Simulated scan of single mutants.
Amino acid sequence: MIKVEGLTKSYGSFRAVDDISFSCQPGRVTGFLGPNGAGKTTTMRIMVGLTTPSHGHVTIGGHAYHDIPNPGRHVGVLLDASAQHAGRTGREILTIGAETMGLPTSRVDEMLALVSLDDTESKRRLRNYSLGMKQRLGIAHALLGDPSVLILDEPANGLDPAGIRWMRGLLKGYADRGGTVLLSSHLLNEVELIADEMILIGRGKIVAQGDKASLLSGADHQTTNVTALDNDLLTKALTDKGFAVTRAGTGLRVEASPVDIGQVAADNTIVLTDLRSADGGLEDLFLALTSDTQRDDLSEGAQA
């Protein structure tokens, strides 16, 4: 379990992390989401003792990271896939890690196989690795000591679609076996597929947290696309209930939740052929909550 309490990090008058508190539970993947510069990496660096907090503290399994003996056996970390000696081979990097943690060299072969780096690739020097290969090696290093906690910063960077799917399955399986995963990313749609819990951060502050259902239930309204065998009859039934309805292609766009629309259709014996949310879901919610932190103008019709 990871527990963050009242964490603050200031650089002069600038607060990179501003009094945040949250926890990550065993058996769950927690997505740590925010725009670039939101404070994600600073928070994770504090977790593993690379940055000193101004206030507050972090414990992993009830201990500060620097108090954990042989921490690689308990906490797997990937903050920067390129932060290894560029002249060493992938196998050498893992072998040094295994020796440092007191692990048998057979563990190196197990991890190389797990992340699909073959014998030829493992003997290349890091400087000749693609970003995707560096990420796979970094994940192998994080898992080397069979830790109970994983802290990963943007692990999907550089991975192709097959690699992203592989990583998704790997981390989900790890959590299913009781591991604790904190996964940082600015790619909300990708994390949405794997995370059990999500923490949204902007300008160093937590702006929302919870599972997908609870986050979306806090949205001001929902918009739904729906098509019926008799759209005119459905339109009348919905407007009679006070819902705003507009035509959208061969169907309707309604300012209501799918559940509300389904209930109206059932009450009036109307057959629906399509019913789905028209909202951008968590992405729209996230952009709304962090709108003052976005670098780009996301307003409708903004000119390039």
Rank of each mutant, 00 (worst) to 15 (best):
D146P: 08
K40D: 12
L182W: 01
G34V: 00
S214Q: 08
R177Y: 03
A213N: 06
D274Y: 00
I60R: 05
L131H: 10
G178S: 08
D230S: 09
A86E: 15
P69V: 07
G138Y: 01
A244D: 15
G61D: 12
R136L: 13
V149E: 13
S257E: 09
E121F: 00
E255C: 06
A213L: 02
G281P: 11
G56C: 09
S54R: 04
I96Y: 12
Q209G: 12
E190L: 04
H221G: 02
L287A: 05
F14V: 15
Q294V: 08
G178N: 06
S130K: 11
P147H: 05
A219V: 15
I139H: 01
A175F: 04
S10F: 00
D67M: 03
D260K: 03
T105K: 13
N231I: 02
Q222W: 01
E121K: 06
A98H: 08
V254A: 07
G27P: 14
G251W: 05
R73S: 12
G210S: 12
A208Q: 14
A162I: 12
R88M: 15
T95E: 14
L187Y: 02
G31H: 06
P69L: 05
K9H: 10
A113T: 13
L112N: 10
L287D: 06
A244W: 01
S217N: 13
K205I: 03
K9Q: 09
V108Q: 10
T51W: 00
I199G: 12
T293M: 08
P35T: 03
G76Y: 03
G173H: 00
L215K: 04
A266C: 02
R247T: 15
T8K: 09
S217G: 10
V75K: 04
E283C: 06
V254M: 07
L238S: 11
G90C: 09
E300M: 08
H57I: 02
T227S: 14
R88G: 03
L171N: 11
S291F: 00
Q209S: 15
E300D: 14
M133R: 10
N189H: 04
L272K: 03
A248F: 01
G179E: 07
G218A: 13
G132D: 14
V207E: 12
R73D: 09
N268W: 00
T30K: 05
T235Y: 02
D292W: 00
E5P: 11
N70R: 13
A304P: 15
I93M: 12
F22N: 10
W166Q: 11
F22Q: 07
R295P: 03
